[in-house]
Design a protein around this nucleic acid. Structure first.
Lengths: 331, 331
DNA sequence: CAGGGTAACTTTCGCGCGCAAGTACTTGTG
DNA sequence: CACAAGTACTTGCGCGCGAAAGTTACCCTG
């Protein structure tokens, strides 16, 4: 009502105090190398608070050349559950360092202009690899700090972050006595790269343990391919299935039930990501839970390292992927 | 390698062309009221492209006073599936108008500083109501355009956008011949407001139709309350349950199975949101699908209206909530 | 009591851009 | 041929801030 929509600037604070803008700036920024008596310092702080001063981010960004924005590029995967806590953690850590974490999900259709052009982030950090075109676009927008530095999709997809859980799945099924296994992935194209990485990991782990990974295929409920798959697996003597994620696992369990098989007795099934749904079903779904908080910290620290050369934590994140045993694999 | 990390500015383009910066600016911004010959216009465009000129958003924001950022504040609900397409659509529409859509999810812990302070968005648009504290904080950050304008939670929560589907659920169960109904909600505190709104809608619809909504309670699988609920419902002669969302519905179906009941014969269950999971289960889950594209357009147009006084589309969105009938309610 | 040193400031510049207000030159008109 | 009305530009200010470089006034030292 009373207050006009004029924004309070540092100049206002200075004028109201009879000081220069520079002094106010030094106080507000805690600029090192300045000798400002505590009394003045406090007067400035108090007056800034009284007037409700807020630094103008756009002006700061222009003057300092840094936007304090970190852009996280996410793949076009539905991954809300496994990501929620990670993002919360990361954005909290970054926030404390003064950075804003903005997420950007690529879509197949694509934006006319990607978010990095519009936001001028200091750092772009990608969950998976960045295509050459994207990298070029980012560089053209003046972004020099782009993570991960890895160019090859392969390198990223075989990274422990994304495949550790798959190893655990296979190991768990093996421990439960299963020797003839299958791996079920998604028909969703969006997942294809990740699915390949996990399938490879499954094969690797099975080989290592001396189990047989006899089949590996995408399944879907709409075309009946899950039910078919389940029948064939059963016929082949396969007794356990590791799934790409909890959705696929749930689908597989449902298909087994439709085919008159019992889970886990005729077919054991394990999912991945430990979504809330896993515990809700009947039979409840064994799964792999990921250390989302750890991931979040790791992500944030990577970003801070790139943004301002903070030391990167020595140890790569111990991601504590862990098996959650529920009914679908319990003997 | 060759190129320094210097950013190309409009001044560079002007100098390289022997023109003034203003002329270049007029061309690049298509500023009306200027008479610039097509030849010059093209020279400028060509040179800008050649040098790889990108406007510096922070400088633009400072000079124009507008950031071209629209911030969408989301509630702390897991709602990825029902939201994904909405967001894609909205951000696409906004993108074409030159705006960037950034989403911000509030967390219980909360950021030290909310995103609107850091981004200076032109418009903040909230999925649900904004608390007085949030509104104050936004206004202090110099944001004047805040949507929705409604202050009361109630008004928002009883809005058709959020409750239309619930009406459909009850109507569908009624049509299938069910007269004794229950409504199952989530124990998740995050949902409480929305759950209340939907529960009220369920009651209203049941009253309207002359059905009995005999019970209405939060259920959970971890404390055994779903199984208990299912048993009690069956004992009371309740034959159908409308659930707050697909998760709750899936949980209810599983509990019924555990209790030895058959779905839908002993108990029909319908979910809400039509998540991908709904079709995957056994029995597959009837649900309510929402017109996400329509919602996205509506959201975007609301934002554009606030941002630059574009006409608001006359008709409020006809949200095409629709029942998807699957096995869990099929007679 | 000149000189240097320092605390406590202020003046000033530049970030890149939008845009209001010029200016010089051309063309049309009575 | 004078003069208004364009055309095709340019000059220059201001957005709010960070921060380098400058300016006092004061105190201490020898």
């Amino acid at each position: 009502m009373t207050q006009r929509k004029k924004r309070v600037t540092a100049t206002d604070v200075a004028r109201s105090l009879g000081l220069s803008r520079a002094t106010v700036g030094y106080v507000l920024n805690n600029t090192p190398g300045q000798s400002i008596p505590p009394a003045t310092r406090e007067r400035v702080m108090a007056e800034a608070a009284r007037l409700g001063y807020r630094p103008h981010r756009a002006a700061q960004a222009l003057a300092s050349g840094r936007s304090m924005i970190i852009l996280l590029v996410l793949p076009d995967w539905p991954m809300e559950h496994s990501l929620r806590l990670t993002l919360e953690t990361a954005s909290h850590v970054l926030d404390e360092a003064g950075y804003a974490l903005v997420t950007y999900t690529r879509h197949e259709g694509g934006q006319a202009r990607p978010l990095w052009e519009l936001l001028n982030p200091d750092v772009v950090i990608a969950w998976t690899a960045i295509s050459a075109a994207e990298r070029t676009s980012m560089q053209a927008s003046g972004i020099t700090k782009i993570l991960p530095v890895l160019q090859q999709e392969q390198a990223v997809l075989s990274s422990p972050t994304l495949t550790a859980g798959t190893h655990l799945q296979i190991a768990h099924l093996y421990e439960q006595g299963h020797r003839r296994l299958a791996f079920a992935t998604s028909v969703n194209e969006r997942f294809s790269l990740l699915a390949q990485g996990r399938a490879a990991a499954a094969r690797e782990e099975a080989d290592r343990l001396g189990a047989e990974l006899l089949d590996l295929r995408p399944v879907d409920h709409r075309d009946g391919s899950v039910v078919r798959a389940v029948r064939e697996w059963h016929a082949q003597g396969i007794t356990a299935v590791a799934a790409f994620n909890d959705d696929i696992a749930a689908m597989t369990v449902a298909a087994a039930q439709r085919a008159g098989l019992s889970v886990p007795d005729d077919l054991a099934v394990i999912g991945h990501d430990d979504t809330p749904m896993a515990g809700m079903l009947y039979p409840s779904l064994s799964s792999v839970s990921i250390d989302n908080v750890g991931q979040g910290h790791y992500l944030a620290n990577q970003a801070l390292h790139a943004a301002e050369y903070r030391p990167l934590p020595e140890a790569p994140p111990d991601l504590h992927a862990a098996i959650v045993v529920r009914e679908s694999t319990r003997r």
